[in-house]
Design a protein around this nucleic acid. Structure first.
Lengths: 258, 258
DNA sequence: CCAAAAGTGTTTAAGCTACACCCATGA
DNA sequence: TCATGGGTGTAGCTTAAACACTTTTGG
């Protein structure tokens, strides 16, 4: 907290004015794939491009509150059902050609989000497969620096599944172990081994708690799986590591860079 | 990127104006303890309190550049020697009574920082023991929300020592394994077991590379330790976990909250 | 009865913990 | 020669990985 040349107390009179926005990477699992909600831009710049939803932070709210508000507007879903966390702040001077904008990106997850309720805003929205967006060469280019934000978000989610119980936030209660495992498969691209995964989840105290009931057997038969609900635990200790087969070959992202 | 009620394109004309600052948690190891550089405030609010150094982000720079600039001003050291990363953004509406400020906090580490060069700014600075600040009841209260920022920074550093080679950024080259181990001790509060630590470091390809020479034996005798330099590796795989004896008892911080 | 999926068992390898030992060095 | 501390060895425990087996159910 300091002025450029008066670190112990800046003057309230003159300082560079910024617009502050929140961009919210809203993720869910649909059709077995990790998907992100994007908005199609109607105006320049980047008219016709897809963008991460967001908006201005009001003068009397913090960024978390602003993100919650935007979240409700964009999805039409009560923000209570979401897990929302801050991702990072993006501040390149030329990231928006219209004005000087600093964006505090957030990350939100929830199961069972409605199809594409564009809230009060009439823009068209769509659930894009994250894998398609980032790997498919035919995928559209995202507006602004939103591809960078999306990549950071994906890496954050992948890492968090390893050492937290976050995966349970992606499934509607009650759920089966198989559904929980499918979340890991959708986010990581590879499924953890079934038997070991089951043991790990059940051995982690408070990850899931039995619901008492059992679910339906699959169409082609099989036993009725046990149903669970989210437990109180948040940390996985020790971690549930994703397979690192290729990661050790191809030079990984610099682990020191956040 | 969206206006409050026009998500696909806000108007450049009216938006809430914010001041954007960077606060930089500058850490180093001194006298065997993890220390942070704080500035004593001369003016209200919080006159006489200690604060994390920082300053305004200029209109034509990003927050990382601003942090580098502040870093050089505060320490008088070439910013090249630092590891600098974004920590998080703090945006409570009342965090600064003078104006609406959003602060993008950063985290910087380096070995061998000079005593308290207050750069061009003549404010008094001091290397505080992080442990004293956060645990000692006699420690001063920090200005603004800086205690929260410092706590977040500490947790980040502790976690990063586990799965990255960041610890090597705290020691001046060339260094011994014992010095590197002392970094873990200072940051975690407990030392990893000596023999296992040595094996782990040497088994992690690219963590440290031999310098060729050997250092001085200690005052009371003993072999000359091998000297090393920082290697190219950034990730520790598998992680070097800190002892979790107490952490499992006392309810840990919510792992889902970033 | 057959295929599919859930639950459980088993074997093997790998990593960590904890401690022991040896040896070079300076006082 | 003695204390100190670096380097290395090793037994035992825990965990993960891979795979097999059994059971339950719908078609």
């Amino acid at each position: 907290m300091a002025g450029k040349s008066a670190p112990e107390g800046y003057e309230a009179s003159s300082y560079p004015p910024f617009a502050v926005t929140t961009d919210i990477v809203i993720m869910t699992i649909r059709d077995g794939a990790l998907r992100v909600l994007l908005v199609e831009r109607k105006k320049d710049p980047y008219a016709g491009s897809w963008a991460i939803p967001g908006g201005f932070v009001e003068i009397d709210e913090d960024t978390h509150t602003a993100a919650l508000r935007e979240l409700a507007e964009e999805t039409g879903v009560d923000a209570e059902d979401f897990h929302l966390e801050q991702l990072a702040t993006y501040s390149a001077p030329d990231r928006d050609p219209r004005m000087r904008v600093v964006s505090v990106a957030h990350l939100a997850f929830a199961p069972n989000l409605p199809d594409a309720t564009a809230g009060s805003d009439a823009a068209s929205t769509r659930w894009w497969s994250v894998d398609d967006l980032l790997s498919d060469p035919d995928a559209p280019t995202l507006a602004f620096d939103h591809e960078e934000i999306l990549r950071d978000a994906l890496e954050r989610v992948r890492a968090k599944l390893e050492y937290t119980t976050l995966a349970a936030r992606f499934v509607a209660e009650p759920f089966t172990i198989a559904e929980l495992r499918a979340v890991y498969g959708a986010v990581w691209g590879v499924m953890p081994e079934r038997a070991n995964f089951t043991r790990k989840v059940l051995a982690t105290d408070g990850f899931v708690v039995p619901d008492g009931a059992t679910g339906e057997a699959s169409r082609s038969g099989g036993p009725r799986p046990t149903l669970y609900r989210r437990g109180e635990a948040t940390a996985l200790q020790p971690a549930l590591l994703r397979p690192r087969s290729r990661a050790e070959v191809e030079p990984e992202r610099d682990a020191l860079d956040n």
